[in-house]
């Protein structure tokens, strides 16, 4: 399997309303990603339209499909994502291996799925049903867990590998989330990299976070840290992904600091390896 046809290449940043002008001013942004739920297919923000007019690809990134949820898939949400992807003329869409609703409640954030065979069957069914509606390839992202379910039958790497293979999905590999899993669940991130189907990586997420009392919080509100850049390096040494994207959602730094973070990602991504 080669890279996703028409998929992103180079270095990108998560587009947010608060930094729309910053992003428009940046010279070295190869692509952006926008939270799909924030966009209305018929009324895209002017900044998104301006980037598109300049030829900057805009990828929709969903957070609310609840692909890891055992309750019936919300087809209205899938259709809305499909409409956003269509409006953006995007080469792919993405969401997470997580659940966000159950028992009539919304979590508001991504919660982990038990790593059992039966749960894997549920996620595979949800992903296949989503793909049947979507119209573009779907990439699945690993999350940053704070807690673990008991009785895991598979490692995170094996779970994601089998999910992508059975559902014929792409991987949106988040190296900061991989670091979170390492710190919070005690797993070896390099072993996860060894288990993952790296040829299926459509692109990579990186973000800043903070460790407090032995727990890593994937805040997207702090600077990139060395362990996350090191994991990106370890990934690139195994197989260089087509693209890497910086996510920053809060406590936005000055423009030059954001540009420096993108440059740091580009330096690792472009590093010549033997």
């Amino acid at each position: 399997m080669s890279a996703l046809p028409g998929g992103p290449t180079g270095v990108g940043i998560g587009w947010r309303h608060e930094i729309d002008l910053t992003i428009e001013r940046m010279a070295d942004v190869d692509f952006v990603e926008a939270v799909a739920e924030d966009l209305h297919p018929g009324a895209l923000p002017a900044s998104i339209t301006a980037l598109r007019a300049r030829g900057v690809p805009v990828l929709p990134h969903a957070v609310s499909l609840s692909l890891g949820g055992a309750e019936p898939l919300r087809h209205d949400r899938v259709e809305r994502l499909a409409a956003v992807a269509d409006a953006l003329d995007a080469p792919l869409a993405s969401d997470h291996v997580a659940f966000v609703r159950a028992g009539g409640l919304e979590s508001g954030h991504l919660l982990p799925v038990p790593r059992t065979r039966e749960a894997l069957d549920v996620v595979v069914d949800n992903v296949r049903a989503t793909q049947a509606t979507l119209g573009v390839p779907l990439a699945l992202e690993n999350i940053a867990p704070l807690l673990a379910w008991p009785d895991a039958e598979m490692s995170e790497g094996a779970f994601l590998a089998e999910l992508c293979a059975r559902a014929d999905a792409w991987l949106l590999l988040d190296v900061a989330n991989l670091h979170a899993s390492a710190v919070n669940l005690g797993q070896d991130p390099e072993r996860v990299l060894d288990e993952l189907p790296l040829e299926r990586v459509a692109y990579v997420h990186a973000a800043g976070g903070v460790e407090r009392d032995g727990v890593y919080h994937d805040t997207h509100a702090h600077a990139l840290t060395a362990p996350v850049l090191d994991l990106l390096d370890a990934l690139c040494a195994r197989r260089r992904p087509p693209a890497v994207l910086l996510e920053r959602d809060d406590r936005y730094p000055p423009d030059d600091e954001l540009a420096a973070e993108l440059a740091a990602l580009r330096a690792v991504h472009d590093r010549v390896r033997a």
């Binding site: 949820g69 055992a70 309750e71 659940f99 609703r101 159950a102 028992g103 009539g104 409640l105 979590s107 919660l111 038990p114 059992t116 039966e118 749960a119 549920v122 379910w149």
Partner: peptide, 17 residues
């Protein structure tokens, strides 16, 4: 663990949260 059992476990976790 069926889809129904998984749904119940996820609902219990979310209710706890």
């Amino acid at each position: 663990m069926s889809r129904e059992e998984l749904a119940a476990r996820q609902a219990a976790l979310l209710a706890a949260l």
